[in-house]
Nucleic acid binder design. Structure first.
Lengths: 254, 254
DNA sequence: CCAAAAGTGTTAAACGTACACCCATGT
DNA sequence: ACATGGGTGTACGTTTAACACTTTTGG
C-alpha cells in the first residue's frame, strides 16, 4: 500500500525536522446558509474526521507553522488566524485507539508520540472563497455545521468547543463579520452570523440600528435580486473604520 | 562548585523525565501598597531576574505542572492560575547570552535546548499570604512593581506584558479582587487595585456605587483603625454571589 | 393576490458620567 | 486645630430593550 509508506515518510520527516511532542490544531470557521461551519478532514480509507493539524519545524515560529499547516492541508492562504489555547492534558487520546481507527500499521503508530501537547488556532474565513481540498493524508475535506458535528478523532470535539467559546467572548473585539462574510452582504445575513455565534435571537430593528451606528459598514445602492420576496440591500465593511473601531474597542455587542 | 553540579542534575533529570523543548512560565501578580506587583526570582550568583518557570513531567498535565512549579519555586499553593498564551517564536532567547549571564558552564548550557516553546500562566495571589522563598536555583525571590521592572532574562519582559494585557481584558470576567486582596479590604483599596490594572483613575463615588450595586461584596460593621485620618469601612467578598455573577458575565467594568 | 422576508421609529428604563462637600481621625 | 484621606447624592445624557406594522417581491 502506497499510503502506508507515505505515512511512514511523513512521520519520519516530522521526527527529524519538527519539534517533538508538539502539534498545532486549526479550527477553521466559515459562515454559509445561516450556519456557522467548521472545516474538517476525513482520513484516508476511514470514516474518521478530525481538525487539520500538523507539526512545527525546528526553525519555524509557531505562528508561522500554523499558517503553513493551514495552507498545506486546506489550500487556504493568509487569513485571520489566532492562537486561542494550548491543550496539555496528559491523556488527550489513546494511541492504540487512534491507530486502530486510522488503520495504521504499528511502525507508523509508534512514530506518533504517546502524548502530544497541541496549540490551538482558530481561523475566520470567507466561505465563498474557500475550495476545500483534501491532501495526501486525507480523502475528503468539507464544511460541517458547528451544531451538528460527528464524533471526532483525538480531543477535537473539545478543541472546537473551546474555540467557539473564545469566539463568542471575543465577538466584541475581533473582526468577525469582516472575515467571515463575503465582501457584500445583507443586514439579515450579518444578523444571523451574530445570532449564530452568540446563540440567541436579536431584534432586527435594534441590530440594524446598532450596526449602522458603529459606522463601520456602508449601504450600497445595489440590492440582492433573484431571491424570493423583498430584495434586501447590500452592505460592505468600511475596512479603515472597522480597524479603527476595533483598536478603540468600540465593537462590543451585548 | 556545588551549584554547578546541582544545575547539571536538574537538567539531566528534566531531560529524562520531562517533555522536551517545552516549558512553563508563571507570572504571579500580587497587590500591595497600591501597586500591582510581580514575583521574580534572582538566579544564583548573578544579578539576573526572571519569572519562575519549569518543565512538564511526561505523565503530568500542563495545568498540573504549572501548579507544581509555582509551589516548588515560590512556596505558593493552590491558587487562581490561568493559562494565557503560548510563546512559540523560533528565537525567544540566545542560548549563549543566557549561559553567560547565568555563569553556566558549557555542559549545563548544552542541556538547555536551543529553542523552547513556553506556555504562560498567570496567577493572582493574596500578597499578604505569600512568603517569597528562593529555591536551589535562586538566591532571592521578591516582589517587583509592575511599573518598574528590570530587564529580565529570556523574553520575560514580553511575557509579563502579555499577561498584563490579558488581565486588563479579563478584568470583567475574572475574580480579580477576590484573588488579589486579603479577605477584608477597604473600598479605596479595591478602587486602587482596579485603577492600577486599568491604568486610569476612577471616580470614587461612581466606583463605590457600582461595586456595591453588583451585590458581590458586603460591608462589615468593622472599620480599619490605626491608620491616620478617617477610618474606612472593611468589606468582604460574598464568595457565592461573586461566582454567580462571574458565570453570568455581570462584572464588566467600563 | 398571497406568502414570506425586509425594512423601519418611538418610548421607557437602565446605566454611565460628571461633579463638590462634609466627616472622621491621629497628630 | 488641622491636615488628610474617607464617604456620599444628584442630575444629565447616552445606551439598551421592548415592541408591530408596512413594503417588496416572486410565484
Amino acid at each position: 500500500m502506497d499510503y502506508q509508506k507515505q505515512l511512514q515518510n511523513y512521520f519520519a520527516e516530522a521526527d527529524e525536522n519538527c519539534l517533538p511532542g508538539l502539534s498545532i490544531d486549526c479550527v477553521i470557521f466559515g459562515f454559509s446558509n445561516n450556519q456557522l461551519k467548521v472545516l474538517l478532514l476525513r482520513w484516508k480509507y476511514t470514516e474518521e474526521w478530525g481538525l487539520p493539524g500538523g507539526f512545527i519545524y525546528k526553525t519555524e515560529s509557531v505562528d508561522v507553522a500554523a499558517q503553513r499547516i493551514l495552507k498545506e492541508r486546506t489550500g487556504i492562504n493568509k487569513l485571520f488566524l489566532q492562537q486561542f489555547h494550548t491543550f496539555g492534558d496528559d491523556v488527550r487520546y489513546n494511541r492504540e485507539e487512534i491507530s486502530r481507527k486510522l488503520h495504521w500499521p504499528d511502525p507508523a503508530t509508534r512514530r506518533w508520540p504517546n502524548r502530544t501537547v497541541s496549540i490551538g488556532y482558530f481561523a475566520l474565513v470567507d466561505f465563498s472563497k474557500v475550495t476545500p481540498t483534501a491532501d495526501f493524508l486525507t480523502d475528503e475535506c468539507r464544511w460541517w455545521d458547528v451544531e451538528n458535528l460527528p464524533s471526532l478523532l483525538f480531543d477535537h470535539n473539545h478543541v472546537i468547543e473551546v474555540a467557539l467559546k473564545t469566539l463568542r467572548v471575543q465577538l466584541s473585539w475581533q473582526p468577525v463579520g469582516y472575515n467571515l462574510l463575503p465582501e457584500k452582504f445583507t443586514m439579515p445575513e450579518l444578523q444571523r452570523l451574530y445570532e449564530t455565534i452568540l446563540n440567541r435571537p436579536l431584534d432586527p430593528r435594534n441590530f440594524s440600528k446598532k450596526m449602522r451606528a458603529l459606522g463601520i459598514i456602508e449601504r450600497l445602492e445595489e440590492q440582492r435580486r433573484g431571491g424570493a420576496y423583498k430584495s434586501p440591500y447590500l452592505f460592505r465593511f468600511d475596512k479603515e473604520k472597522y480597524k479603527k473601531a476595533l483598536k478603540e474597542g468600540n465593537l462590543a455587542f451585548s
